[in-house]
Write a protein that binds this DNA or RNA. Structure first.
Lengths: 147, 147
DNA sequence: GTCATTTAATTGATATATCAATTTTTGATA
DNA sequence: TATCAAAAATTGATATATCAATTAAATGAC
């Protein structure tokens, strides 16, 4: 059973794409089944706002998540509509909005954290800490190579 | 400098998502700069049709790529509009279309293959064969865990 | 202090993913 | 054979990513 060097490299990216999609779908479904009307990307944004102790702007959140400003605007629109956070005009720079959690948003976060952890645990079942470190090293190399 | 087990697991998925997005963006840009009006996903579909020696249906291509039938329909619409392939009604099952390359599509494939290989080589620069095998093993575990 | 440049956010257009609903055709069964 | 369920493809709706263009506000150069 042979697999060429090129095929191996091809397959590995395909496999990475599949893994990420599966994780996303699994998570979205788990959120839904747990009664949360939230996607993974919405979760990621909400969590960053929650974790930011100080006032955060949209640009700052976008940078943390490597997301485009346009994507962020739209995700925030949804989160605002769901009353999980809100925008408040920055006091000193009127181009900016400070992003702030609502009580409902905070409650969502706190109730979702255990679920998110359990999903990650499930995804990485049978993967050793050493393997995770190798994985992370490889991913950093790939990102550097494509910079 | 400590990083908890949970953070490590969190970061690794974030990093994987970033790596895949960077590869996609890098590839799309490289295609564009090489004068090809084609996205990576369009490339993937076109390449599978090219590689299929026999007649292939949309469902078969969708399965090969783990893509939704709806996504495939839309990508094919674009490829047909670009005259890189065409649909031909299946002789024995009128629900199906056989997907066939046009000369232009074949030429695109042949000219793009070296570029695609060079992108993969660049992405995996400094990543050893052993690491790639570990990576693949981990990804398979993740996919299995989330089935 | 005015004017040009930069920055923050938004909006529009296009590509893709996902799910649901629909249409057409096939195949199986009663 | 008439019917009914399954399969193939399409279409619509929504979420996200990316790029381009736009608006409003801040900053920097002179």
């Amino acid at each position: 059973m042979f697999i060429s060097d090129q095929e191996l490299k091809d397959v590995v990216f395909f496999s990475m794409d599949q893994s990420m999609r599966r994780l996303r779908n699994y998570s979205n479904q788990a959120f839904h089944e747990a009664g949360f009307d939230l996607t993974v990307d919405q979760w990621l944004v909400l969590k960053r706002v929650y974790d930011a102790q100080e006032q955060v702007s949209q640009t700052e959140i976008a940078e943390m998540l490597s997301k485009d400003g346009a994507s962020l605007t739209r995700i925030l629109d949804i989160l605002v509509k769901k009353e999980l956070l809100f925008r408040k005009m920055n006091e000193t720079d009127r181009r900016k909005f400070d992003l702030l959690m609502t009580p409902k948003g905070t409650e969502y976060i706190q109730r979702l954290i255990p679920l998110v952890i359990s999903i990650r645990e499930k995804a990485l079942n049978n993967v050793s800490d050493a393997e995770i470190i190798v994985l992370r090293t490889i991913l950093e190399k790939i990102k550097t190579n494509l910079r």
